[in-house]
Design a protein around this nucleic acid. Sequence first.
DNA 1: CAAGTGTGTGAGTGCACACTTACAAACAAG
DNA 2: CTTGTTTGTAAGTGTGCACTCACACACTTG
Lengths: 180, 180
Amino acid sequence: MRSTAEARRVTVLNAAVSAFARTGFHATPVTAVAAAAGISEAYVFRLFSGKLGLFVAAAGACFERIATAIEAGAERAAGGSPEEVLDAMGRAYAELIADRDLLLFQVQAQAVTDIPEIAEAVRAGYRRVATFVQDRAGASDAQVQQFFAYGQLCHLIVTAGLEQVPEPWARALTAGIRHP
Amino acid sequence: MRSTAEARRVTVLNAAVSAFARTGFHATPVTAVAAAAGISEAYVFRLFSGKLGLFVAAAGACFERIATAIEAGAERAAGGSPEEVLDAMGRAYAELIADRDLLLFQVQAQAVTDIPEIAEAVRAGYRRVATFVQDRAGASDAQVQQFFAYGQLCHLIVTAGLEQVPEPWARALTAGIRHP
DNA sequence: CAAGTGTGTGAGTGCACACTTACAAACAAG
DNA sequence: CTTGTTTGTAAGTGTGCACTCACACACTTG
């Protein structure tokens, strides 16, 4: 017994978030996740119920990490105005997604929401983050909406590689966005 | 000779935008596009250079349709203030994507930007739309950025099906968004 | 009518990949 | 030491799909 199944699951999930983030659900073979986790493909199938179960679990881990980072950011601005708390949350999020895995995973997950289980996982993730922002920052509906709108804009900037484009239109879209 | 190759290409591209929008690049077999277009798979491969060439061409058609719709919207508010023109563009876009194909295709395209040819097609599409908004509406950088941020928010709302979620967090995110 | 050109397909080929099964080694408990 | 349980894998199996090729039909031109 080299390791417990539960510890393996954590390792596999980290590998899965990274792998799915890069190549997406359909283009990522389970072999790739298994190799990145350092175990055999067969064992991944024993630890998770199929590729879909693995992806859904990875989505849970992804949003878990995002939620805790935003909570930590809010902690640092505790007691401030809604604007200050939102800003602290935004900074915490920006730091977290510097490695791009969590951001790209969200994009990939949104692209396969035609699979009901994944759609539900995405909703659950955003439900958690949105309710927290709403409650903890005490932000208005419009502020919450803006928070997410500019978060989604980051997805476009990163996937299209706009931070590398020097043209005026790209500069306008990336203006003021924190080091994506 | 039942039809010219050029006419077929148009038919196939319409079918391709629809099919790729629903199931994405990797999960959409060329057979599905061919069937939707009413021709054989083999002929699709003669009309386009591989599945990738087909997808890139479909991306061109998608952004072409978006650009012309926004241009038509701007036409209706010609001479107005930047806010009025932007609003008219937004309304035109909202009407256009009521059938969801163009919106979902953009999401799918963003998810496969790890393929360089697709990344370039996406950039080209947004370049066209963004420069037009910037020039034609005379909008400031911040206004252009906001226009796209809320456009991207629509992607999230539609892919996650948030318009069907009655909870407060979802209501906050969808507030004021035009019938997505 | 013969030869050429453009439109269209049926029938493959080969490969990647999701998932299974049979089996082995490590450890625990009596 | 034996029996049972958990961790782990090698070696398949079946299928779906991108892409090709040989061939047929439509239409034009000389």
